[in-house]
């Protein structure tokens, strides 16, 4: 048994734990290699880094909400409304296909749509709704749009995998007992799909926190998120120690948020429980 686990343990050690330990060590050293907390002092005393962290989480939160708002109805539609299996498969393919394309390409696609001379602005100006093109790109909203587009498939896939495993007779039982379609959804289908929503939102949130390409392109460098700062430290400032500090800080705060989220869900009275 142990022998069978060895390869995966070795893999985990070599590619996840060892690099992380190295980064963590680097974050605790100054440029000369001496142990020091100076990097953390520098990061936490400068309001700029706190604002960047806040922006990163705000963008990720919005992205999660948008991915849920679009992804859940889509997952519901694909799994519970579409009856034809071939059409359902087609929907899955449509949802998954964008994942095969580089996010660089997909983000530049948004520039074609949202740019100053993009399709959306052209249409708005041509229809006379606005006089001048709107600054749609390079804003916080643009980053959220770009990320949501990339993250929604993850939400659709996790939610639909849970939805399609919910026993159909449960919804029938609810209707049989006098619940309308809406009440059935609110009291039975949705509470039972929460594990999918939780898994999906965790994936989307953490991927958004660490996203680099999409925020860089969509913001044009005007909205700086943590991953961009970290890349800067490693790639242009060459301060590996401070880069490591920022990376560890991002990781730890993300973990705290995720833990808090999961704890809040656990603490709540059981999902959908009614009080007699």
């Amino acid at each position: 048994m142990v022998a069978l686990l060895l390869p995966s343990l070795a893999f985990l050690l070599a590619f996840f734990i060892a690099p992380f330990v190295m980064v963590a060590f680097a974050s605790l050293q100054d440029k000369t290699g001496a142990w020091s907390l100076a990097n953390y002092a520098r990061a936490s005393s400068d309001l700029f880094y706190w604002r960047t962290l806040l922006l990163t989480f705000r963008i990720s939160l919005w992205t999660t909400l948008v991915a849920f708002a679009i992804g859940y109805p889509l997952a519901y539609y694909i799994t519970l409304v579409v009856k034809n299996r071939a059409i359902r498969r087609l929907f899955y393919i449509i949802v998954v296909t964008p994942l095969f394309t580089s996010s660089v390409v997909r983000s530049f696609g948004w520039m074609v749509l949202l740019g100053r001379r993009g399709l959306v602005n052209d249409a708005l100006v041509a229809s006379g709704l606005v006089d001048r093109p709107l600054p749609l790109m390079f804003s916080e909203a643009a980053v959220v749009i770009g990320l949501s587009y990339i993250m929604t498939p993850f939400m659709v896939l996790t939610v639909s995998s849970v939805l399609q495993n919910i026993d159909r007779s449960l919804a029938e039982a609810a209707e049989d007992l006098g619940a309308s379609r809406l009440v059935t959804f609110l009291t039975v289908t949705f509470p039972l799909s929460l594990p999918g929503v939780i898994a999906g939102s965790l994936i989307v949130f953490t991927l958004s926190v660490s996203a680099y390409v999409t925020p860089s392109i969509m913001s044009g460098g005007k909205q700086v998120v943590m991953s961009m700062l970290i890349f800067q430290q490693y790639g242009s400032v060459f301060d590996f120690n401070f880069g490591a500090t920022l990376a560890v800080a991002l990781l730890v705060t993300t973990l705290i948020l995720v833990a808090g989220y999961l704890l809040a869900i656990e603490r709540r009275p059981r999902a959908g429980r009614e009080v007699a």
Partner: peptide, 17 residues
């Protein structure tokens, strides 16, 4: 009202609920 073959009890509710 129907008693379903699979019972179709709501797994997230107690017996009372």
């Amino acid at each position: 009202n129907t008693v379903f073959q699979s019972y179709a009890l709501f797994p997230h509710y107690t017996v009372r609920d």
